[in-house]
Amino acid sequence: MIFRNTPVRWGAVSQLLHWLIVALIAVQVTLGLIGLELPLGMEKLAALARHKSIGITILALAAIRLLWRWMNPTPALPGNLLPIERFLARFTHAGLYVLLFALPLTGWIMSSARGFPVSWFNLMQLPNLVSKSGTLYHAMIEVHATLAIALGLILALHIAGALKHHFVLKDDTLRRMLPGCAPAADRSVAAADSPRKSC
């Protein structure tokens, strides 16, 4: 197992961060929607408290992920892409990174503006980002919800892209984000490129 990225493959750390965040986002959206539906009461309080804790976790993981990306080579996009596909890949990836920060931050601002301080799993109380304001709270609910919808749309593109690479173009784009060996074609490139094996 290699931890760092190579020019052709995502390392274990990048992979772990990618799929951990995927799993947390799934839980996160579910909890957000549950929180939205429930009437005011303990279940809503519990769902939203977990939603906030996991959201803050995603924020921290996103920061680590960007830092790690900056400290590592980024595997080049596959060479078989049209300019428009290249643009779409860059645009969706950048958009996803922006949302990984913007969603938790708007949620945190929303909670602060409502006057409900945020705690991380009952272990640590976080500072309020803004002071109490009804106007800001209502604006942030809208922004948070809109960003969540944007996340859904961009993710649809992102997943469609990943599946197209795998099933239509039959290249290694999806595989290089998954644990295990890259196929022979990829391995020979990797071997030429770095003295270590790609898996």
């Binding site: 309080l45 519990a46 408290a49 301080p117 945020v118 705690s119 799993f121």
Partner: peptide
Amino acid sequence: TYTFTQAGAAN
């Protein structure tokens, strides 16, 4: 005034 803990945070 009073302070109570709601979802792990002081309110």
